[in-house]
């Protein structure tokens, strides 16, 4: 990187960096609460915060289109589906004593080890790498549309087929249970 020498160090952050770190901390905190809270619906709502935080990070990285997709799909649909699922499986109000399974310790150990390894490797590798976010936006709708429908058309179409298959699959799964237990609707 020819700009490697020109960029400021870690001790003199730019405004974008400060915002990024702040939002990142909030996101991470929301994620941690989401995976540790004993209230199931709260977990899903904290997940909304975490996903929204990631959307903001996308905006900060000038990937605007992806940020809105993130909001539309994740916050608007995925989390709603998750909440649906939680409510249909009778998530209680208040704390569930058995929200966590028996291998919390092992999970914690593995997660901490993975985090340590990844952070170490990433920091070691990208200590002095600089992203230039001040130039032209990298993820405007025009740019994204052009690359998506010019270079990535075939994967895009394949994905549409996958979505269709998932749609059909979900319908089939739901229909089967209603046929097996007709009294339950």
């Amino acid at each position: 990187m020819n700009v490697a020498a020109a960029h400021p160090g870690f001790l003199s952050p730019t405004g974008v960096e400060i915002v990024f770190v702040l939002v990142g901390v909030a996101t991470l905190a929301a994620a941690v609460v989401s995976v540790t809270t004993k209230q199931l619906v709260h977990a899903a709502l904290w997940l909304v915060v975490a996903l929204g935080g990631v959307a903001v990070e996308y905006l900060l990285l000038t990937a605007e289109f992806i940020a809105w997709v993130q909001v539309l799909i994740y916050v608007g649909s995925v989390v709603v589906l998750v909440l649906f699922g939680l409510m249909l499986t009778k998530a209680p109000i208040g704390r569930s004593p058995d929200a966590d399974s028996g291998n919390r310790i092992a999970a914690l150990a593995v997660a901490v080890a993975a985090a340590g390894t990844l952070v170490w490797v990433v920091v070691d590798a990208f200590r002095s790498t600089w992203i230039d976010v001040d130039g032209a936006p990298q993820g405007s709708t025009k740019v994204t549309g052009e690359i998506l429908f010019r270079h990535w058309v075939l994967p895009f179409e394949a994905l549409s087929v996958l979505l269709l298959a998932a749609l059909v699959g979900a319908i089939v799964l739901s229909r089967k249970q209603s046929r097996q237990q007709p009294g339950e609707r």
Binding site: L45, W68, V69, V71, L72, G76, V79, V80, L83
Partner: peptide, 8 residues
């Protein structure tokens, strides 16, 4: 996208 959040 933002309107979709209202459902929450």
């Amino acid at each position: 996208a933002v309107m979709g959040v209202g459902v929450l």
